[in-house]
Amino acid sequence: MQPLLTVNDLTMDFGGIRAVDRVDLRLRPGEIVALIGPNGAGKTTLFNCLTGLHRPTGGDLVLAPPGRPQRNLNGLPPHRITAAGLARTFQNIRLFPHMTVLENVMVGRHCRTTSKVFGAIFRPEATVREERETVGMSLALLERIGLAEQADEWAANLPYGAQRRLEIARALATEPLLLLLDEPAAGMNPQETQELDALITSLRDDGLAILLIEHDMKLVMRLSDHIVVMDYGRKIAEGTPEEIRRHPAVIRAYLGEEEYGA
């Protein structure tokens, strides 16, 4: 199958520091790719480049949505990239704390809806319908992640694990083709991690491509179709979980001298 996202030679320099060094990446629809590596390896910087928060110093980002012409995402502002079909969550949760859980998800619908100031004030039929759809779809997403009960709660009041799930729901509301999850299991208890596992699997089964930064190796090994290992901004290895488990460079750089697993 043709890749959904092709990243060629992506490079990001901050002054004299090269945070991401000529990284290549391919993602197919319905595929889970994990991005692992020690802290400071450049994983989040790579995410920021993909989603437009940083403007990459070099390289190409090409998105090829199935059945639509492919397009180059280089240098697009974040909101255009989200509209093109890339949605993300953040390593340090970035919800809108003083909006309700439901409103957080509704904000995600922004780029798929169109009503403007005129619509807001006069509420023509089209706006009313759009608003109803926004509420309906957002509630359905909350249902899916198991937060429908708390829809009218302030987002800030949710427990940590629920906040992480809410971030995923908010990203899903943008109807992405590719979902970028930055350490979604961080700080979750085993029960929550298991639920997250099931959620990510079901999203994959829906045909979403998922790029995952994660430190929970059990989760990574279980979920990923493909693993990319980064260190010092460079891609040092890639392959299936089995291959990565045995890769000497990975063991040296990331898993320590002893082999991971047991």
Partner: peptide, 19 residues
């Protein structure tokens, strides 16, 4: 909602597709 999102967190606001 977009205004509130901007007020709460402008990076997340952009990442949600808000111009």
């Amino acid at each position: 909602r977009a205004w509130f999102a901007l007020r709460e967190d402008d990076i997340a606001c952009q990442a949600m597709g808000i111009n």
